[in-house]
């Protein structure tokens, strides 16, 4: 296999994408516990269903698996897709960073074609809505207002989700 030279900046961006994807996956896990809309979306899926978030051509991806005892998230290398998965893969690292750092909402990203999805689009749309809810919890107030002009009702305080992501997800 040809070994490619990747600059330091690109490597930092790549690791940044992996970390951001994992934070979002943890955010989904936290929202599953506290937000009924996210719980409803994931409860409709059968056990063993995977939701994968990553960047095209990158080996690492964040995988959220729905099991009987809830959601589990992890970073997987060289994920092998099955017929029980939805993949949301950003076209490049910049798109991933822009969306996962909340500069661009998931809805805008879908409209702008910043990512591709593999799997049934009807299910992918539901997951994108779930990510939108997570994004509203993880964003600052100004970005939340910019992303969805109508107040998306938040069922708990954003601080609850953020602290759960920080302490249960990362530490």
């Amino acid at each position: 296999m040809k070994r490619r030279y990747i600059s330091k900046t690109a490597r930092i961006k790549k690791y940044n994408c992996i970390v951001q994807s994992y934070i979002y996956a943890s955010g989904v896990k936290a929202c599953y516990k506290y937000d009924s809309r996210v719980r409803q979306i994931f409860d409709e899926m059968p056990d063993g269903y995977d939701l994968v978030v990553g960047v095209l051509e990158h080996r690492h991806a964040a995988v959220i698996t729905k099991l009987s005892d809830g959601l589990h998230c992890k970073i997987v290398v060289d994920y092998v897709p099955s017929n029980k998965c939805i993949q949301i893969m950003f076209k490049n690292m910049d798109s991933c960073t822009l969306v996962l750092k909340n500069y661009v909402s998931f809805f805008q990203a879908y409209a702008q074609g910043r990512f591709v999805t593999y799997g049934d689009n009807a299910i992918a749309v539901k997951f994108i809505k779930a990510f939108m809810i997570v994004q509203c919890y993880l964003s600052s107030i100004s970005k939340r207002k910019a992303h969805i002009k109508d107040a998306l009702p938040l069922e708990v305080k954003p601080a609850v989700i953020k602290s759960r992501v920080l302490f249960r997800g990362l530490l």
Binding site: F107, Y110, A111, N121, A122, V125, K126, I128, K129, M132, I148, K149, D150, L152
Partner: peptide, 12 residues
């Protein structure tokens, strides 16, 4: 509510 046409409407 799970149709993709809704996503670009910018409204929940």
């Amino acid at each position: 509510c799970s149709d993709s046409s809704l996503i670009s409407s910018g409204r929940w």
